[in-house]
Every structure is written in structure tokens, then in C-alpha cells.
């Protein structure tokens, strides 16, 4: 078995979150299919991975707060609220689109 198998993902940021990710809205990523315990990777794993590996900004608290995605950020898996998909435990599939939306308040 290939332990270095990867899966392709599209990760997008909007509502100002892109500023924390090098001002880039759309990121095409290859992530390992399994985490270091050998389990299939989940969205929860992806959030941690983005925070540690992709985000250059040091203000991690604007993305993850107390171990959870910060309040005011919606996570959408293939355009559906992740709460409809099992939240952080959702197992990532090849070519999934994961969108992080920071709510806006201006009017």
C-alpha cells in the first residue's frame, strides 16, 4: 500500500479570510489521504493543516480559536454547511471543495 497517497482538494476563503492566506482566495492543494495515525483525513484535520502549513500569518486566532474554527466563520463542504455533513469528522473525498466564509457585518 502506498502510504504517500494524496488527494486533491480545492480550498477557498472569502469574506476577508483570504487576507490570512496570502491574499489568495482559491488554493489547490494535495493533502495526504491518511493522517499520521493512519486514519482517513477529515475536515477537522484540514483545518489544523491549513493553520499549521498553509497560513503564513501569525494571527492564528483569527482562524482557529480554542481548538475550533473561530465563531463567525462558516465552513461549507461542496457548498453545503458542514453541519449537514458531520462537521469536523467529515472524511475528505478527492476533489472536494471546502469553502471558509467569514461573516460580514457592514451595511
Amino acid at each position: 500500500m502506498d502510504t504517500h497517497e494524496t488527494i486533491p482538494l480545492i480550498v477557498e476563503f472569502t469574506g476577508g479570510l483570504e487576507m490570512l492566506f496570502s491574499d489568495q482566495r482559491k488554493h489547490t492543494l494535495q493533502v495526504p489521504a491518511k493522517d499520521d495515525k493512519g486514519n482517513a483525513v477529515t475536515v477537522g484535520w484540514l483545518v489544523h493543516h491549513l493553520c499549521e502549513e498553509v497560513m503564513k500569518d501569525t494571527r492564528k486566532e483569527l482562524f482557529v480559536l480554542d481548538g475550533h474554527v473561530r465563531p463567525g466563520i462558516l465552513v461549507l463542504i461542496n457548498d453545503a454547511d458542514w453541519e449537514l455533513e458531520g462537521e469536523a469528522s467529515y472524511v475528505l473525498q478527492p476533489r472536494d471543495n471546502v469553502l471558509f466564509v467569514s461573516t460580514l457585518h457592514g451595511g
Binding site: 480559536l65 465563531p71 463567525g72 466563520i73 462558516l74 467569514s102 461573516t103 457592514g106
Partner: peptide, 28 residues
């Protein structure tokens, strides 16, 4: 239901600070 917890106040940006295009808010 959608936002059970408010965002930290530091993460909230107003139009006065962040800027706004008139036609964009107009669309909304």
C-alpha cells in the same frame, strides 16, 4: 442557529475601516 456565538470583536471590520464599494452594497 447559523451563528450561535458572535465573532470576537477584534475580527469585525466596519465599512469605515475596511472600505466598501457603493455598488456592491447596493447589489445586496
Amino acid at each position: 442557529c447559523v451563528f450561535p456565538k458572535p465573532p470576537p470583536a477584534e475580527s469585525v471590520v466596519s465599512c469605515g475601516d475596511g472600505g466598501i464599494i457603493g455598488a456592491v452594497v447596493g447589489v445586496m
